[in-house]
Amino acid sequence: MNNLKKYLEVSPEVQEALAANKPVVALESTIISHGMPYPQNVETALKVEQIIRDNGAVPATVAIIGGKLRAGLSKDEIDYLGKKGLSVTKASRRDLAVLAARGEDGATTVAATMIVAALAGISVFATGGIGGVHRGAETTMDISADLDELAMTPVMVVCAGAKSILDIGLTMEYLETKGVSVLGYQTEELPAFYTRKSGFKVDYRIDTPTELAKIFQAKEDLNMKGGMLVTNPIPEEFAMDHDYISKSIEDACEEAEKLGIKGKETTPFLLDKIQKITGGKSLEANIQLVFNNAALGAKIAAELSKLK
């Protein structure tokens, strides 16, 4: 573990919070570099951090900067990632060791953020939506590393469900196979990112942050490996019509196939295309659901800190 100090750097504020058993919420950085244009990406990231503070927790935005796995960034560092944008490596599990050894920068996906959060001792992570099984994966085998990470790494991930661009049915089947609990916050139906509907049920409906914290603590006490997924529907006033967004996604997927876009380029392409099709409405929905997840993540972290 001593060698870990060469690579992992936890900000003083996050270190102090963890040492004092105060609630901390991890945040990813792909949304900063690959999620939206500058300066909107930086403004959104700072607003998410403020929402976590307003709800009684300490934010820990995660990234790789100069080869260091960082948990907790300064405003200048968030601005640096925002300005670099798409030139920053989109970093998942497979990229961490390479970027660390080379001393390079990386914006962390769900999987990589979970890894860094767990190394730092952070149990709760709020994001937009998780990756999953892509449409047509029965032939392409395009399955996000996020799903295996949820099966291995002890972090509770708060999201607005799987991204609507995915095959949600297969994503749920995969999570079931891996033994990952999918919990619906005040809902029995799995939300699908831009919309509150998906046609699929969650494993359990949970109505309070207190119970969510107790469930995660029970998993830890039972020494069960892996994380948990909390699915938090986008607020009603920002939700998009299910049929409208489904048609927009189908159109975007058809174009991606025609252009031969594959692998880790798929999600950024589809999200950008859907934003254009919807005249920016999907981006606004994306921002609002992240705000909503950050607030819930902070409340769960606060309850979890009381149990420890």
Rank of each mutant, 00 (worst) to 15 (best):
R135Y: 07
G280V: 04
S123L: 13
Y244W: 13
L81R: 10
L175E: 12
A107N: 01
E49M: 02
K262T: 15
V133G: 06
N286Q: 05
K264D: 11
D203N: 14
E28H: 06
V88I: 15
E13F: 04
M156C: 06
Y80D: 13
L229I: 11
S305P: 03
G260K: 02
E189T: 13
Y38P: 09
T140W: 14
G132I: 10
K306A: 13
K258D: 09
S29V: 02
L147N: 04
A57P: 00
K225W: 03
E303G: 01
A298V: 06
K308F: 07
M1R: 11
T195I: 05
K273I: 04
I130K: 01
L8T: 07
L166I: 10
S164T: 03
F269Q: 11
R102H: 10
V158P: 02
A57K: 01
T171E: 09
L289V: 08
S74H: 09
A301L: 03
S33P: 11
K276P: 03
P59G: 02
I168H: 08
H242F: 15
Y204T: 10
K178I: 03
V158G: 03
A45Q: 02
P191E: 09
A111M: 13
A301F: 02
A301I: 03
R70G: 04
A239C: 07
V155C: 11
A256F: 08
I277G: 11
T208H: 07
C159R: 02
A112V: 05
S87H: 13
I51Y: 08
K262P: 00
T139F: 05
N41W: 08
Y174I: 01
S248P: 01
I274V: 15
